[in-house]
Simulated assay, not measured.
Amino acid sequence: MKIAFSPCPNDTFVFHAWVHQLIPGAPQLDVTYADIDITNTLASGSKGPDVVKISYAALPWVLDRYALLPCGGAMGRGCGPLVLTADKISDPTVLANKRVAVPSERSTAYLLFRLWVAQEVPGGVGEIVVMPFHEIMPAVRDKAVDAGLVIHEARFTYRNYRLSRLVDLGRWWEDDTKLPIPLGAIVARRTLDLSAIANWIRASVKHAWANPEDSRQYVMHHAQEMSYQVAQQHIKLYVNEFTENIGGLGYQAIETLLTRAHQAGLVPEVDLAKLRP
């Protein structure tokens, strides 16, 4: 079975047991490791993987071929993207007509950013520059861009670049909606046995929680020079009860995000009935 997910610690932690054939009855996996902007593109093609990790923001473009699985993804509280600047500022209106680096234009981070800008930056920002997420903080530090939208472990490391946080978009979302933040979704081709795949993923998650040291070498091999401490923070933040089961509150968060994004003209309209099993 072909699968694609990121090399980030939360994904390698979740899928370690399945990748290493520790889940009884689960098929062997052929894994492609790629950042979320690439996996979003893989899922949008007609020959995409059987199972793939994408951003919830990319769901409207793939739901005709892929079904959202109720487990394995990234959702939670206190885990949202940040907008960073080189200088310490608190007034969001300074971003008007400025250059902002983002990791993808089909990401939850980008949707949250655009929804926040619509409220807080009259007239909007200027140029949006898409670049790999690990290049954004150096670009902000070097003032190649005026601000950067960052995700993943940048929550823990941005101070190493002497950058300042203008806004925590996760906190903004939670204050505004009282809902968790839907970040990364696991989807599978609708022609497959979706229930079986979900069961294998849940088994892999439970194995990871029960045997956290088993996955350490695998996680750190793919952690892109991240320290073990930061990798553990990353896993603790992004692998939680929503990873095991999205649940009613999680589906409400997904529906709210995609509905607001459609109303803002950022994504196509979604048949909300297709989101749930």
Rank of each mutant, 00 (worst) to 15 (best):
E153G: 13
D35W: 13
C8P: 04
V62L: 05
I197K: 05
G45R: 11
K274W: 04
T41M: 07
I201N: 12
G72P: 14
C79Q: 13
G73F: 11
K178T: 10
S227T: 15
L192A: 07
S204D: 05
L192F: 08
V129H: 04
I23D: 04
A118I: 04
S44T: 07
I3Q: 01
V145T: 08
A208R: 08
L95D: 09
P81C: 09
L111I: 01
P60D: 03
L237N: 15
A223T: 07
Q119F: 03
L258I: 01
C71N: 15
P122I: 10
V150F: 05
L29C: 00
V14L: 04
K88H: 04
V270W: 00
V167D: 03
E244H: 13
G250T: 14
N199Y: 01
R141Y: 09
Y158H: 08
L272C: 02
E105Q: 14
V267W: 01
V150S: 06
I254G: 08
N160R: 14
D87N: 06
P277G: 10
G25C: 00
V150Q: 06
D175K: 13
A101N: 11
G123L: 06
R216M: 13
I136V: 03
N245R: 15
P138Q: 14
Y110P: 00
V117Q: 08
R141C: 06
C71Q: 13
N97C: 03
M137H: 04
K53S: 15
W200V: 07
K274P: 02
I254A: 09
V130D: 03
K274F: 02
M226G: 07
H207S: 06
K274A: 09
H234G: 11
I197S: 05
D193N: 10
L149I: 10
S227M: 13
L272R: 10
E120I: 02
D271M: 00
A57C: 00
A57N: 00
V121Q: 07
R155H: 11
K53R: 15
Q252R: 14
N211M: 02
D35K: 12
S6I: 05
V117S: 05
Q229Y: 15
R202N: 12
